[in-house]
Protein backbone atom coordinates (compact mmCIF):
# COMPACT_ATOMS: atom_id res chain seq x y z
CA UNK A 1 0.00 0.00 0.00
CA UNK A 2 2.88 2.33 0.77
CA UNK A 3 4.18 1.78 -2.71
CA UNK A 4 0.86 2.77 -4.13
CA UNK A 5 1.00 6.01 -2.33
CA UNK A 6 4.38 6.85 -3.69
CA UNK A 7 3.28 6.06 -7.19
CA UNK A 8 0.35 8.38 -6.82
CA UNK A 9 2.56 11.18 -5.60
CA UNK A 10 4.89 10.73 -8.50
CA UNK A 11 2.12 10.74 -11.04
CA UNK A 12 0.80 13.90 -9.49
CA UNK A 13 4.14 15.57 -9.73
CA UNK A 14 4.42 14.84 -13.41
CA UNK A 15 2.79 17.91 -14.77
CA UNK A 16 0.27 17.25 -17.51
CA UNK A 17 1.79 19.71 -19.97
CA UNK A 18 2.15 17.91 -23.30
CA UNK A 19 5.61 18.03 -24.76
CA UNK A 20 4.65 19.31 -28.13
CA UNK A 21 7.45 20.40 -30.40
CA UNK A 22 5.31 22.90 -32.21
CA UNK A 23 5.38 25.69 -29.69
CA UNK A 24 2.37 27.48 -31.12
CA UNK A 25 0.11 24.60 -30.14
CA UNK A 26 1.11 24.69 -26.50
CA UNK A 27 -1.10 26.81 -24.33
CA UNK A 28 0.98 28.31 -21.55
CA UNK A 29 -0.50 27.22 -18.26
CA UNK A 30 -0.50 30.70 -16.74
CA UNK A 31 -2.91 31.95 -19.35
CA UNK A 32 -5.62 29.47 -18.53
CA UNK A 33 -7.91 31.23 -16.10
CA UNK A 34 -8.48 29.45 -12.82
CA UNK A 35 -11.92 27.98 -12.76
CA UNK A 36 -14.13 26.57 -10.06
CA UNK A 37 -17.40 24.74 -10.19
CA UNK A 38 -20.35 27.07 -10.68
CA UNK A 39 -22.52 25.42 -8.06
CA UNK A 40 -19.71 25.58 -5.52
CA UNK A 41 -19.22 29.27 -6.20
CA UNK A 42 -22.96 29.85 -5.94
CA UNK A 43 -23.19 28.06 -2.60
CA UNK A 44 -20.40 30.20 -1.21
CA UNK A 45 -22.11 33.32 -2.54
CA UNK A 46 -25.36 32.45 -0.76
CA UNK A 47 -23.61 31.40 2.42
CA UNK A 48 -21.64 34.65 2.46
CA UNK A 49 -24.83 36.71 2.48
CA UNK A 50 -26.51 34.45 5.02
CA UNK A 51 -23.56 34.47 7.37
CA UNK A 52 -23.42 38.28 7.29
CA UNK A 53 -27.08 38.27 8.36
CA UNK A 54 -26.28 35.80 11.11
CA UNK A 55 -23.49 38.00 12.44
CA UNK A 56 -26.04 40.61 13.40
CA UNK A 57 -29.04 38.50 14.25
CA UNK A 58 -27.52 35.75 16.32
CA UNK A 59 -25.30 35.72 19.36
CA UNK A 60 -23.99 32.24 18.83
CA UNK A 61 -21.56 31.15 16.18
CA UNK A 62 -23.76 28.28 15.06
CA UNK A 63 -26.68 29.26 12.90
CA UNK A 64 -29.37 27.70 10.79
CA UNK A 65 -28.96 29.17 7.31
CA UNK A 66 -32.56 28.91 6.19
CA UNK A 67 -33.94 30.49 9.31
CA UNK A 68 -31.63 33.46 8.92
CA UNK A 69 -33.37 34.45 5.71
CA UNK A 70 -36.84 33.54 6.93
CA UNK A 71 -36.50 35.56 10.11
CA UNK A 72 -34.83 38.51 8.43
CA UNK A 73 -38.03 40.56 8.16
CA UNK A 74 -38.53 40.36 11.93
CA UNK A 75 -35.23 42.02 12.72
CA UNK A 76 -35.04 45.50 14.10
CA UNK A 77 -34.77 48.14 11.37
CA UNK A 78 -31.42 49.32 12.68
CA UNK A 79 -30.05 45.83 12.40
CA UNK A 80 -31.41 45.46 8.88
CA UNK A 81 -29.71 48.70 7.94
CA UNK A 82 -26.45 47.49 9.42
CA UNK A 83 -26.64 44.27 7.49
CA UNK A 84 -27.31 46.04 4.21
CA UNK A 85 -24.54 48.51 4.95
CA UNK A 86 -22.05 45.73 5.59
CA UNK A 87 -23.05 43.95 2.42
CA UNK A 88 -22.74 47.16 0.44
CA UNK A 89 -19.30 47.86 1.84
CA UNK A 90 -18.23 44.34 0.96
CA UNK A 91 -19.67 44.69 -2.51
CA UNK A 92 -17.96 47.99 -3.16
CA UNK A 93 -14.56 46.69 -2.14
CA UNK A 94 -15.08 43.55 -4.23
CA UNK A 95 -16.03 45.67 -7.23
CA UNK A 96 -12.98 47.84 -6.80
CA UNK A 97 -10.68 44.84 -6.68
CA UNK A 98 -12.35 43.30 -9.73
CA UNK A 99 -11.82 46.51 -11.67
CA UNK A 100 -8.05 46.50 -11.11
CA UNK A 101 -7.28 44.59 -14.28
CA UNK A 102 -9.74 46.61 -16.34
CA UNK A 103 -7.96 49.61 -17.82
CA UNK A 104 -10.60 52.19 -18.32
CA UNK A 105 -9.20 54.11 -21.22
CA UNK A 106 -11.00 57.31 -21.98
CA UNK A 107 -11.76 56.30 -25.53
CA UNK A 108 -14.49 53.97 -24.35
CA UNK A 109 -17.97 55.37 -24.60
CA UNK A 110 -20.45 54.93 -21.78
CA UNK A 111 -22.31 52.35 -23.81
CA UNK A 112 -19.15 50.34 -24.33
CA UNK A 113 -18.42 50.36 -20.62
CA UNK A 114 -21.98 49.28 -19.80
CA UNK A 115 -21.71 46.50 -22.37
CA UNK A 116 -18.49 45.40 -20.74
CA UNK A 117 -20.37 45.25 -17.42
CA UNK A 118 -23.22 43.24 -18.91
CA UNK A 119 -21.00 40.76 -20.66
CA UNK A 120 -17.76 40.30 -18.81
CA UNK A 121 -18.25 41.54 -15.28
CA UNK A 122 -21.60 39.83 -14.85
CA UNK A 123 -20.08 36.72 -16.35
CA UNK A 124 -17.39 36.77 -13.71
CA UNK A 125 -19.99 36.91 -10.95
CA UNK A 126 -22.72 34.57 -12.15
CA UNK A 127 -21.27 32.80 -15.15
CA UNK A 128 -23.75 34.35 -17.56
CA UNK A 129 -24.59 37.66 -19.18
CA UNK A 130 -27.25 40.04 -18.02
CA UNK A 131 -30.64 39.36 -19.58
CA UNK A 132 -31.38 42.65 -21.22
CA UNK A 133 -30.11 46.19 -21.42
CA UNK A 134 -32.25 49.26 -21.94
CA UNK A 135 -31.34 52.90 -22.15
CA UNK A 136 -33.14 56.20 -22.52
CA UNK A 137 -30.20 57.56 -24.58
CA UNK A 138 -29.75 60.33 -22.05
CA UNK A 139 -27.27 58.62 -19.82
CA UNK A 140 -29.50 56.28 -17.86
CA UNK A 141 -29.03 52.55 -18.35
CA UNK A 142 -31.37 49.84 -17.13
CA UNK A 143 -29.87 46.37 -16.69
CA UNK A 144 -32.46 43.65 -16.25
CA UNK A 145 -31.74 40.41 -14.48
CA UNK A 146 -34.62 37.94 -14.68
CA UNK A 147 -32.75 34.84 -13.61
CA UNK A 148 -31.13 35.49 -10.27
CA UNK A 149 -34.36 35.49 -8.29
CA UNK A 150 -37.30 35.25 -10.69
CA UNK A 151 -36.54 32.23 -12.83
CA UNK A 152 -34.44 30.46 -10.32
CA UNK A 153 -35.07 27.74 -7.85
CA UNK A 154 -34.88 30.10 -4.89
CA UNK A 155 -38.25 29.64 -3.31
CA UNK A 156 -39.74 29.28 0.12
CA UNK A 157 -40.54 25.92 1.49
CA UNK A 158 -43.92 26.30 3.07
CA UNK A 159 -43.58 23.54 5.62
CA UNK A 160 -40.92 25.21 7.72
CA UNK A 161 -41.62 26.37 11.23
CA UNK A 162 -40.51 29.90 10.51
CA UNK A 163 -42.47 30.25 7.32
CA UNK A 164 -45.44 32.45 7.91
CA UNK A 165 -48.06 32.31 5.16
CA UNK A 166 -49.87 35.43 6.30
CA UNK A 167 -46.68 37.45 6.16
CA UNK A 168 -45.07 35.95 3.09
CA UNK A 169 -45.05 39.31 1.37
CA UNK A 170 -42.91 40.74 4.14
CA UNK A 171 -40.82 37.62 4.32
CA UNK A 172 -39.79 38.05 0.72
CA UNK A 173 -37.93 41.14 1.83
CA UNK A 174 -34.86 39.03 2.54
CA UNK A 175 -34.39 38.56 -1.19
CA UNK A 176 -33.53 42.26 -1.46
CA UNK A 177 -30.19 41.47 0.11
CA UNK A 178 -29.01 39.89 -3.13
CA UNK A 179 -29.51 42.86 -5.48
CA UNK A 180 -28.20 45.17 -2.77
CA UNK A 181 -24.96 43.24 -2.76
CA UNK A 182 -24.65 42.90 -6.53
CA UNK A 183 -25.49 46.56 -7.12
CA UNK A 184 -22.69 47.49 -4.76
CA UNK A 185 -20.27 45.26 -6.67
CA UNK A 186 -21.21 46.93 -9.95
CA UNK A 187 -21.04 50.33 -8.26
CA UNK A 188 -17.57 49.63 -6.93
CA UNK A 189 -16.46 48.48 -10.35
CA UNK A 190 -17.69 51.65 -12.06
CA UNK A 191 -16.89 53.91 -9.14
CA UNK A 192 -20.34 55.46 -9.15
CA UNK A 193 -23.56 54.66 -7.36
CA UNK A 194 -25.79 51.97 -8.81
CA UNK A 195 -29.39 51.68 -7.62
CA UNK A 196 -31.88 48.96 -8.28
CA UNK A 197 -35.57 48.23 -8.26
CA UNK A 198 -37.20 44.88 -7.83
CA UNK A 199 -40.60 43.98 -9.17
CA UNK A 200 -41.96 40.45 -9.25
CA UNK A 201 -38.44 39.31 -8.47
CA UNK A 202 -37.10 40.87 -11.68
CA UNK A 203 -34.17 43.05 -10.73
CA UNK A 204 -33.40 46.24 -12.64
CA UNK A 205 -30.08 47.89 -11.94
CA UNK A 206 -30.07 51.59 -12.80
CA UNK A 207 -26.82 53.29 -13.75
CA UNK A 208 -26.80 57.03 -14.32
CA UNK A 209 -24.11 58.93 -16.15
Amino acid sequence: MELNNEVSNKTLLNSPIPKNEDASNVVPIEQQPLTVDYIFENLIFHETIISVVSLYSEETIQYNPTNQLLKYYKLNENIQENIIKTLQQMGTSIGKKLSLDFNNNSTMTHLQIIKHICKEVYHKIFGRQIDSLKTNHQGIFYLLDKQLLANSSIDFDKSLENYNPSESQKQIKCLELYPNFVAAVLGGYLDRSVTFTMENRVITYIIKY
Binding site: L34, T35, D37, E41, F45, M90, K97, G127
Partner: peptide, 25 residues
Protein backbone atom coordinates in the same frame (compact mmCIF):
# COMPACT_ATOMS: atom_id res chain seq x y z
CA UNK B 1 -17.44 17.04 -18.46
CA UNK B 2 -18.60 19.66 -16.01
CA UNK B 3 -19.83 22.44 -18.28
CA UNK B 4 -20.73 24.83 -15.51
CA UNK B 5 -17.38 26.31 -14.66
CA UNK B 6 -16.73 29.86 -13.68
CA UNK B 7 -13.79 32.15 -13.23
CA UNK B 8 -12.43 31.86 -9.72
CA UNK B 9 -11.61 35.55 -9.37
CA UNK B 10 -14.93 36.62 -7.89
CA UNK B 11 -14.90 33.73 -5.43
CA UNK B 12 -11.41 34.54 -4.20
CA UNK B 13 -12.14 38.22 -3.72
CA UNK B 14 -15.53 37.63 -2.08
CA UNK B 15 -14.02 35.20 0.34
CA UNK B 16 -11.28 37.66 1.21
CA UNK B 17 -13.71 40.42 2.00
CA UNK B 18 -15.85 38.03 4.02
CA UNK B 19 -12.91 37.10 6.22
CA UNK B 20 -12.23 40.79 6.70
CA UNK B 21 -15.82 41.40 7.78
CA UNK B 22 -15.60 38.53 10.26
CA UNK B 23 -12.37 39.85 11.76
CA UNK B 24 -13.89 43.31 12.10
CA UNK B 25 -17.06 41.97 13.60
Amino acid sequence: QNMKKINAEFLTITYGSLVKVLIDH
